[in-house]
């Protein structure tokens, strides 16, 4: 490193989230841990998990409506179902005796993709945010005109699920939007959804999550991780369940069903 220009990076880590107050006798040992100023023990006593998650990302505790909205979204995403690719990846790891601590990361990494996964949440967030000044009806029809493929989402976060409208997401969206019916974002989304429904397209889970995170003014990048966090319990539970079953208790295709094409 002689004669080299200094690297000149910051000398310390900076954070607005957490302050640790050292013990009087050991500067490495935290005697108190504060989240945005609130002692973590007080948070544990007086708030909910969802409010503490909101606090971590926003720096303030939520009001009752936003708390209910985030809580309802997190419960709605808590289990994407045993057929979802991320759940299946985690279950495959579970039954094949992968180390237990890897099961959740495997599910979450699989969930990270941009075909209905966490990466699409950011794209959907931007799509909704950038479209709010446009007529949802006109935009929907323009996008539907361009769409020629059954598998292509008409816009990030919106499209068909197995060629059809996902009925569960329609009901969940209505449930969520009723919590905050005055939301400009939700009103726009509902108009857009009603229009694309004429073409057999509807909500994708990434789009619904994005709409709520945008309404809560979570950042677009934060929304990616919060989506993963919300989906995590179901991934983990399904994976753990499989660890208790023998490896033969999940299908492995016979040779005749695994066809090598030339």
């Amino acid at each position: 490193m002689t004669q080299k220009q200094k690297l000149d990076f910051s000398k310390s880590i900076k954070s607005k989230i957490c302050q640790e107050i050292p013990s009087d006798t050991n500067p490495y040992l935290a005697n108190e841990r504060l989240i945005s100023g609130y002692n973590i023990e007080e948070l544990a006593e007086k708030t909910t998990l969802i409010d503490s998650i909101y606090l971590l990302f926003k720096g303030e505790l939520p009001n009752a409506i936003d708390s209910k909205l985030l809580n309802s979204l997190f419960i709605s995403l808590i289990n994407l179902g045993p057929r979802h690719p991320a759940t299946r990846a985690a279950m495959t790891a579970g039954i094949s005796k992968t180390r237990a601590e890897h099961l959740l990361p495997i599910g979450l990494m699989t969930l990270g993709g941009d075909k209905g996964g966490a990466s699409e949440v950011e794209l959907a967030y931007l799509f909704i945010q950038n479209s709010l000044d446009n007529s949802p009806n006109v935009l929907a029809n323009e996008l539907m005109e361009k769409q020629t493929d059954l598998h292509t989402h008409i816009a990030p976060g919106f499209g068909a699920t197995y060629g059809d409208i996902d009925p569960i997401l329609i009901r969940i969206a209505n449930q969520l939007f009723n919590i905050k019916p005055e939301s400009v974002i939700f009103k726009w989304c509902l108009k857009f959804i009603n229009e694309i429904a004429k073409h057999n397209a509807g909500w994708l889970v990434s789009g619904l999550a994005a709409a709520v995170f945008l309404e809560l003014k979570m950042g677009k990048r934060e929304s990616v991780g919060l989506f993963q966090l919300a989906c995590a319990p179901g991934l983990l539970a399904h994976a753990m369940e499989q660890t208790h079953r023998p490896i033969t208790d999940m299908p492995l295709l016979e040779d005749e069903n695994y066809v090598l094409k030339k």
Binding site: S12, S15, Q19, I21, P22, Y28
Partner: peptide
């Protein structure tokens, strides 16, 4: 454990809200 670049509590530059209590 904790052998790599150990950090004292005060080595983190805390930039957030000051200590406060939850209002009932």
């Amino acid at each position: 454990e904790n052998s790599l670049l150990p950090l004292k509590c005060n080595d983190i530059d805390y930039l957030g809200a000051p200590k406060r209590s939850i209002k009932n």
